[in-house]
Amino acid sequence: MIAVGALLHAKQLSRSPFEIATALIIPVVQATLAVYLFRAGGEPGRLLEAAVGAGLMGVWSSVLFGSGGAIQNQRWQGTLEMIMLAPRPPALVVLPITLATAITGTYAMVATLAWGRLLYGIPLTFADPVAFAVAVPGCIVGLGMFGLLLASTFVLMRNANALTNTLEYPIWLVSGMLVPITVLPGWTGPVAAVLPTTWGARAVREAATGSGPVWPSLGICLAISLACLVLGALMMTHVERRARAAATLALA
């Protein structure tokens, strides 16, 4: 059910020219910015890292805006009542949506890598290609599970959109997607340590550059994501019951 649902929602998201163009063009612009910044900083050897980092930023943007608005989008489409009527736990119905946002986020990764290779001649020589091929989907699944927690949290908040718009750069920054965590103030360390984005980005970067062991980072990413999934599922059940009792499913 999760696989079919994720595929269905990924197909639906992929039918939107706006979503696709945004997922492809904006990360490419950011990758270009990163490439020129790394070149200007005398770090031409780290261009693959820049392209991968920009791709991960695109994945996070997709999860943040897609999952953050998952419930609201269903409400606007008039399909929220129907999916909530399904005889399955609400988390199982919403998880495919958040996974789909992470899957469509991979367009960003593909776009930045292809752009870097074709335009700037960045060699796509991954230190550990097998680990990279596992780390990227692992990171995607992890972020999709994290997305469920976002979706269930944001549905409780009247001003969730404000939080969505605010969270893009802080997570890019604290998770070390482009800026190494070591240059940030010390107090950001504990915040970074509990975010699955930090460990997912680290695993993908380690697989691409060989800067460390991939599997522990990926394992921690998935473990934190699993905890987010459990929390998100509990919260989603609570929200659904409350909305049914108060008859506010389509109004909240």
Binding site: L37, E168, W172, L173, V179
Partner: peptide, 16 residues
Amino acid sequence: LFQLLFFAYLGRQLGV
């Protein structure tokens, strides 16, 4: 503000 901090720290790290 976070956008500014992101680029300021990136710039610091790269020494641009």
